[in-house]
């Protein structure tokens, strides 16, 4: 039997524009998801440890194939105050989603068919990044949204004290600079698509801060810590002409 109750349903919203459906790997230690985005330029890794759920019970390994498009609709209409519970019995073909509004006591139940998902599993190597910079998540979202109104990609440059997001396009150029207190092993410059950063920054509500791990010419890591876990977004850089 599997039963998990989750209070940060906003996590679903953060990944719905990147992934249509995914296997949720349920273990006694917690729930994990690792999947390439639809255009195969990013990888989303989510880990939610058992301790972050009240309650959490999983007595055998279970892979639930879940449509995030459907899950998003369910969570969206439940509102912010609702908790989401996932239940499965010995039949792996279906699972239950239970939405509970604590204020009104309203309970909505769904019986959902597990999807068979053809998912490629990528090995993510351990990387020593040249810079690991933590900034307020709301500032990061503001910068990404603002620059993306007019421009398409952003060059991230980091120095000892500042991280600079600069961008140029047909209409001209723009940049945003933020102070940080992180250690750098050397200067970094990498260019990535703003559209994806805007998507990643939808996880802003999950955490006050976001950590950017950067090295030239390797995927950038954008990480949001959540209670008893994390949401990580790896994004392949743009290289050369």
């Amino acid at each position: 039997l599997f039963h998990a109750r989750f209070e940060q349903a906003g996590l679903v919203d953060a990944i719905k524009d990147l992934i249509q459906d995914s296997d949720f790997h349920c273990r006694d230690s917690g729930i994990a998801l690792r999947n390439m985005d639809n255009s195969q330029v990013a990888v989303v890794v989510i880990l939610l440890e058992a301790g972050g759920f009240l309650p959490y019970h999983c007595d055998r390994r279970l892979n639930l194939g879940i449509s995030l498009t459907s899950l998003t609709k369910i969570v969206h209409y439940a509102g912010d105050e609702a908790t989401l519970a996932l239940k499965a019995n010995d039949n792996p073909d279906t699972f239950n989603l239970v939405l509970e509004c604590l204020q009104t006591g309203c309970i909505i139940k769904y019986d959902i068919k597990s999807r068979d998902i053809d998912q490629e599993h990528l090995e993510i190597p351990k990387t020593d990044y040249a810079a690991t910079i933590t900034i307020p998540s709301a500032e990061f979202q503001r910068i990404c949204r603002n620059l993306s109104q007019l421009l398409e990609s952003v060059a991230n440059e980091a120095s000892e004290e500042r991280i600079k997001f600069s961008s140029s396009g047909d209409i001209g150029s723009g940049s945003a600079t933020l102070r940080h207190n992180s250690d750098l092993t050397g200067p970094i410059a990498l260019t990535i698509s703003l559209k994806y950063l805007v998507n990643f920054s939808k996880a802003t509500a999950l955490s006050y801060s976001v950590t950017l791990s950067l090295s030239s010419e390797v995927p950038q890591l954008v990480e949001y810590k959540v209670e008893s876990g994390f949401a990580r977004f790896y994004f392949a850089p743009q290289i050369g002409e």
Binding site: Q40, H121, L122, P219, A236, Q238
Partner: peptide
């Protein structure tokens, strides 16, 4: 504009 790389060119399948 640079060329967008695929993530699989950095992360190999298991």
């Amino acid at each position: 504009q640079g060329k967008q790389r695929m993530i699989s060119s950095f992360f190999a399948p298991k």
